[in-house]
């Protein structure tokens, strides 16, 4: 054995092999990102592409401060002071996500359970669901503008519409996949109708509800950005659209990066752990394909 292998073995024993492999993977995965950033910097140096087309990295970073330049401070930003452009747009988008989630998720679950338990109800609601999901969130935007005008009501409606049907559908499928014996088990123990919902259907459908929530965030966030671009007057989607019209490319880049970071972080660090936890806790009954 050479000194190098011996050294490597010593290190691995100390740090742990799994952890090292993981670190190596992260390192390897960051190589393309670093490469891209270097290319980006080189482009700034040699101007292969016009700054209007690909703005310098520093400009994108600077856009944060430019957009916030008149903002009096953190407290003002939280109070949505008029001049805190960037934070206002972020909060406006996030606020709608939360509002739509708070309204849409419980509604979707309630209708989903009802439809899942009752074949007649689901018989009529299922085609509606299929149709609503097919007319994808985005296609509703023009009609929503007619109904609610340009503004936050339209974007909220688009988001709600997307979330509700996804949650509804997933809950219904989850409830349907709950084995009948479990329901009968609770009933023979003297459980009421309400007990079967509380102790069997809801927990049984939970994993697929959570999966529905992940899908909702994925599709909903996209639909929301589109809605803000077309029929909104605030939010990150609105921001990048306006910036693009004014050819402020650095603001567009900043917005795009923020949009994907917000999605990635909330999916990875909120919904994925939640999904894992529910599946561990209740087991997977039905998995959407």
């Amino acid at each position: 054995m050479t000194a190098i292998t011996e050294f490597s073995i010593a290190v691995q024993k100390r740090v742990g092999r799994q952890r090292l492999l993981k670190a190596f993977k992260v390192l390897l995965g960051s190589v393309p990102f670093i490469f891209l950033i270097i290319l980006w910097e080189l482009n700034t140096q040699f101007v292969w592409f016009d700054p209007i087309e690909i703005p310098p990295l520093s400009d994108v970073w600077g856009a944060i401060f430019f957009l916030q330049s008149d903002c009096p401070g953190f407290v003002a930003a939280m109070q949505q002071h008029n001049d805190c452009n960037l934070t206002n747009n972020i909060m406006s988008s996030l606020g709608r996500v939360i509002l739509a989630g708070v309204v849409g998720i419980p509604l979707g679950i309630a209708f989903g359970i009802l439809a899942g338990m009752n074949r007649t109800i689901s018989g009529y609601l299922e085609p509606v669901g299929i149709f609503m999901n097919s007319v994808s969130g985005i296609a509703w935007i023009p009609l929503a503008i007619v109904w609610f005008g340009v503004g936050w009501e339209t974007t909220l409606f688009i988001m709600l519409n997307t979330i509700f049907w996804l949650i509804f559908f997933n809950t219904m499928m989850g409830v349907r996949a709950v084995p009948k014996v479990l329901v009968q088990g609770v009933q023979t123990l003297g459980g009421s109708y309400y007990d079967t919902i509380k102790h069997v259907y809801l927990p049984g459908a939970m994993p697929s509800v959570i999966t529905g929530m992940r899908m909702s965030l994925g599709f909903g966030w996209r639909a929301l950005i589109a809605a803000e671009m077309i029929g909104g007057d605030s939010g990150l989607g609105f921001m990048i659209f306006v910036s693009a019209v004014e050819f402020k490319t650095e603001e567009v880049f900043l917005g795009v990066i923020l949009i994907s970071l917000i999605y990635l972080i909330s999916d990875r660090y909120m919904l994925v752990p939640l999904e894992k936890w529910t599946i561990e806790r209740w087991g997977l009954v039905w998995k959407p394909t």
């Binding site: 209007i52 087309e53 985005i138 966030w221 996209r222 950005i225 589109a226 671009m229 989607g237 990048i240 659209f241 910036s243 693009a244 050819f247 490319t249 567009v252 880049f253 917005g255 795009v256 990066i257 949009i259 994907s260 999605y263 990635l264 999916d267």
Partner: peptide, 15 residues
């Protein structure tokens, strides 16, 4: 993948 096609739309329009 998480940069949705719709979000990059303004960039593509500039290009």
């Amino acid at each position: 993948q998480s940069v949705s096609g719709i979000a990059i739309f303004p960039v593509i329009v500039i290009w």
